Computed example of a mutant assay.
Amino acid sequence: MDRTERFGMADRIITIGFLINAVLMVMKLLAGYFGSSEAVLADGMESACDFAAMLVTMIALKIGRKPFDEDHPYGHGKAESLSAMLVSLGIFATGGVILFNAGRTILAGTCLKPHGIAVVAALVTILAKETLFRYTRRIAQKLESPAVDSIAKDHRKDALSSVATLIGVGGAYWGLSVMDPLAAGLTAFFIFYIGWETFHNAAHDLMDGQPPREIIGDIKAIIDKIPQVECVHEVRCRRSGQYLIVNIKLEMDPQMTVKQSHEVTVIIKKCLFEEFPNVGDVMIHVNPHEPDAEHHDLIRL
């Protein structure tokens, strides 16, 4: 999959989510206000924050797709992780506002009985958001994009919070009015959890954390199949947006010429690019293979 196809796929899924979220946002705000439901109104406020978060993500994707330049030799992919972190902060803020308003309503004893339109709005939101989550998550896993994955998690957060909203507004509709603000408060805790997960993953990528160990193992297994490679000394990876930057230290026959060892590294790169469409760059350091010697690379980290 080339760059144009990857970024086009990311654009499409985010645009779809953006438009559907806009419709749901207006629907829930109107249903919550006219249907006298604090839980549904809170859900609409949450969607308004999501709307802003998607705008941030779309901007980040445009920045992240820029090719490397003199000032950014590893590309601009980190913009995606930065946007995911900003999204997480917005999620936290939304949860705080919803929790505060729900607590104030319960303490003041001003709970109202919602109308049927609020119940319908919550049900429609669950169906729409869960469908969006499943579709967006498949694309995020295919692209291995932190920005798209954060949007997928945001859709799941909306679906889960709307389940709580439906329970609360449904209970209030049938006579237990306090369940409406209680559902809004419970929604806030769902939001906090998703916000933390999104923040943690974005921070991990910004700190150049390793990808899952399975990926490292798969990379080593591919290199081990190259006959000229005597030993894979080390594999390190870090994420830059949708791409992985791979650093490899390996050992080869010390009698090989520079040209021969270079040809082997080209073979390794081609194999990795073919097997992993999200690998953006591979840097290889070659050590001479000496069975009785240990290699101590100079490093200050």
Rank of each mutant, 00 (worst) to 15 (best):
L99Y: 03
D208C: 08
S37D: 03
R6Y: 01
S36G: 04
Q242F: 08
A140C: 05
T131F: 14
P212W: 02
N101K: 14
D281S: 07
L29E: 06
V26I: 15
R156E: 07
I268N: 05
I63D: 04
C271L: 09
A48V: 10
A183W: 06
H233G: 08
T165E: 00
I106P: 09
F133G: 06
H115W: 07
E80H: 03
I14H: 07
I139V: 13
L186T: 15
V235C: 11
D218F: 00
P212I: 05
H200E: 07
M283Q: 08
I191Q: 02
D158P: 07
L298F: 08
E38A: 12
P277A: 02
D69L: 05
D11M: 07
G109K: 13
I268K: 06
S36L: 12
V23Q: 09
L206A: 09
V264M: 03
L89V: 15
L186G: 15
S36C: 02
S177T: 06
S261V: 12
L24R: 07
G175L: 01
D149Q: 13
I167L: 14
G8T: 05
R156L: 15
V235I: 14
A22F: 13
G96V: 14
R6K: 11
S177V: 03
A184L: 12
A128W: 05
E144Q: 01
D43E: 15
E234M: 14
A159D: 13
F199C: 06
C237I: 07
A31Y: 04
G77T: 12
C237M: 12
F192C: 00
H115F: 11
V148L: 07
R134N: 01
T125M: 01
G195T: 00
F92A: 10
L30K: 08
P254Y: 05
I223T: 05
T125V: 03
V87T: 08
E46T: 09
Q260C: 09
T4V: 13
L160W: 11
I194D: 00
K220W: 00
D2H: 12
L55K: 10
E290Q: 06
F100Q: 12
A48H: 07
K270M: 04
L244Y: 13
M54G: 13
